[in-house]
Design a protein around this nucleic acid. Structure first.
Length: 588
DNA sequence: CAAAGTTTTCCTGGTT
DNA sequence: TAACCAGGAAAACTTT
């Protein structure tokens, strides 16, 4: 792309005042202050501007002359603006580089944070605080895939062609998402009653001010838009996106934004019966392997409780925090799925204040600590600081009548079933190596059998481990009712989620993941209750029914509940192609 | 050290 | 043929 236009070289007029050779100044177009340029908190929009300015700096040195009188030259990138525009436009088709996914009913649109943030303060507000290592998934639940696609495409290209019957919906969605610069004008010499109606419905879009760029339009309409980035990045985010917004402030807002939890599993629902509350696949493209998710606070069922702030960064809340959320199905429910939900590698547990149950977990087999890192598969004696095979504080033996999966002397051992369960909750390994098909039902699939076996071997410090041996170990669980193989499938197993300890452990994951959203303090007590000092004791009743309901709602996947009804082709379909097929086939 | 539980290793045989 | 699955048997290992 850059080769199309090469920088031109021209001698600078020697009459310019000399400037120290080491000093760079902004081009005559650039005007941002240095301190802003260096700000670590630049918004994506700022970054866009900054990128342009830096490019200018790179290609355009100030006209100057050093003390020895040498001439200086200015390198100018002809067509810089259009080049950047073309680059941004070309990004639309570059899924590989996408760093955010916008999802609606059954459709996923890989996108780029920079583009979304530049086009919408709404997206900007969401994305600006997220670490670049995460791949957030933003779910606009009630948006039609086609409409959302129009708008995302508009964000890239600044132009979009759509049918007139979609216009009203697209405009409404654009307003909800605060897409910048969308502006409609009557085509020259044309008048349209529908435009008048739209103007009444969307007066903001019909402001006669602001510059206009060209739009493609159906025959009877011509709309224009202007991209008017604000100098302060996300500062012009709509009021309802500001943090600490009181419920009363949101009264009268036409849209309701909800933060809702997402399932870890890809969920599918027949197209014939789309529900406004259908939660589309939360899984992102392959790059999501290490991503985590936001979800609602424990105790806040998705559809009934007031949405909580996400990561304390902002508050998205409808005008009514009550059950009317379910009634307003025209408003796009919003689910934000960035990364800090699942269990973290060892560093995370150390960042939290210790709690009784956490102590128990780390003594026995911290979910994170018992799983080796995928890169360090070297020698048997290699330092695997996390492998808790070293005996520590003795743990209590199971009560005589306990029906838990533990027989007795495994309290501080790395057990295979625990290891698998941990893998399934560690974003480093799921969904790439192993993933849930139906978490509520305990059904999972091993995606990379060799890799999982190697990881197991690392955990056990056994270089000779392979899937043959590991699977033999898994088969020993059949008789004990811990694990089962799904007949007729390959590499698909099911945990007995009725087993008290498995259930307890999965609930622990739920709450631990929830804790990573910033509500650590409020969840400490819950955690300390759910995992008593003896990790063999059944879960206490400290987890409220509301929490349990919320967690069940998060993960339940009716499509996978009855495995017998699923065609094997679906079960065997690799995750990645599954995801992409869904996203592509349903968008167009 | 013994007992109990868990996993590993090896094996035969089967299916896809 | 490769990969996966089922399960028996015995050894090895860990925990109590």
């Amino acid at each position: 792309m850059l080769s199309e236009k090469t920088p031109s070289l021209s001698p600078l007029p020697s009459t310019r005042a000399p400037v120290p050779a080491c000093r760079r100044t902004m081009s005559n177009e650039g005007s941002s202050s240095p301190d802003r340029e260096d700000s670590p908190h630049s918004s994506p929009t700022d970054l866009m501007t900054l990128a342009r300015q830096r490019l200018r700096n790179r290609w355009s040195t100030p006209p100057s002359r050093d003390s020895e009188g040498d001439e200086e030259y200015q390198l100018r990138w002809e067509g810089h603006g259009s080049q950047l525009t073309n680059m941004v436009t070309s990004l639309e088709d570059n899924e590989a580089s996408s760093d955010v996914t916008v999802v609606t009913k059954g459709a996923s649109i890989p996108s780029h944070r920079l583009v979304l943030a530049a086009a919408s303060p709404f997206f900007c507000q969401i994305l600006q605080g997220l670490p670049t290592s995460q791949h957030p998934v933003i779910v606009i639940k009630t948006a039609h895939p086609r409409h959302l696609r129009y708008l995302v495409s508009f964000c890239y290209t600044g132009t979009v062609t759509l049918h007139s019957h979609d216009l009203q919906h697209v405009l409404q969605l654009a307003e909800d998402l605060e897409i910048r610069g969308l502006k409609i004008t009557l085509a020259e010499g044309r008048s349209s009653p529908s435009l008048a109606t739209l103007a009444a419905l969307h007066p903001r879009l019909f402001r006669p001010s602001s510059p206009i760029t060209r739009f493609s339009f159906p025959q009877h309409l011509h709309r224009s838009s202007s991209v008017t980035p604000t100098p302060h990045g996300c500062s012009d985010a709509p009021a309802n996106l500001k943090r600490n917004m009181s419920p009363s402030d949101k009264e009268g807002q036409s849209k309701k934004m909800k933060v809702e939890p997402l399932p870890m599993d890809s969920e599918r629902r027949p197209h014939s019966n789309p529900s406004p509350y259908y939660i589309p696949p939360a899984s992102a493209p392959p790059t999501l392997a290490s991503s985590l998710f936001f979800k609602s606070t424990p105790g806040s069922p998705p559809n009934s409780a007031p949405p909580q702030s996400v990561g304390e960064s902002f508050s998205l809340q409808g005008s009514s925090p009550s059950a009317d959320d379910n009634k307003d199905q025209d408003s796009p429910g919003l689910s934000i799925v960035p990364s800090s939900r699942l269990l973290q590698p060892p560093s995370r547990s150390s960042s939290r204040p210790p709690s009784p149950q956490q102590d128990t977990i780390s003594r026995s087999q911290s979910p994170a600590s018992q799983i080796p890192t995928p890169v360090n598969r070297t020698v048997k004696e290699s330092s695997m600081p996390s492998t808790p095979t070293t005996p520590s504080t003795p743990t209590a033996r199971p009560e005589p009548g306990s029906s838990g999966v533990l027989g007795g002397s495994s309290g501080s051992r790395v057990l295979l079933w625990r290891f698998l369960l941990d893998l399934l909750h560690n974003p480093l390994y799921t969904p790439m190596y192993i993933r849930w098909l139906d978490r509520a039902g305990g059904v999972f699939r091993i995606m990379e059998s060799d890799m999982v076996a190697q990881l197991w071997g690392m955990a056990r410090k056994n270089q000779n481990m392979n899937y043959e041996k590991m699977s033999r170990g898994m088969r020993t669980y059949y008789k004990r009712g811990i694990l089962f193989h799904i007949d007729g499938t390959k590499l698909i197993y099911r945990f007995n989620t009725n087993d008290p300890e498995i259930e307890q452990r999965m609930r622990y994951y739920d709450l631990t993941q929830a804790s990573s959203e910033g509500e650590v303090s409020s969840e400490q007590n819950t955690l300390s209750s759910i995992l008593p000092p003896s990790n063999l004791a059944p879960p206490t009743s400290s987890v409220t029914s509301a929490q349990a309901t919320a967690l069940e709602n998060i993960y339940s996947n009716p499509l996978f509940r009855d495995m017998a009804q699923l065609p094997h082709s679906l079960l065997y379909e690799p995750y990645i192609s599954f995801f992409r097929k869904t996203s592509h086939s349903e968008l167009y």
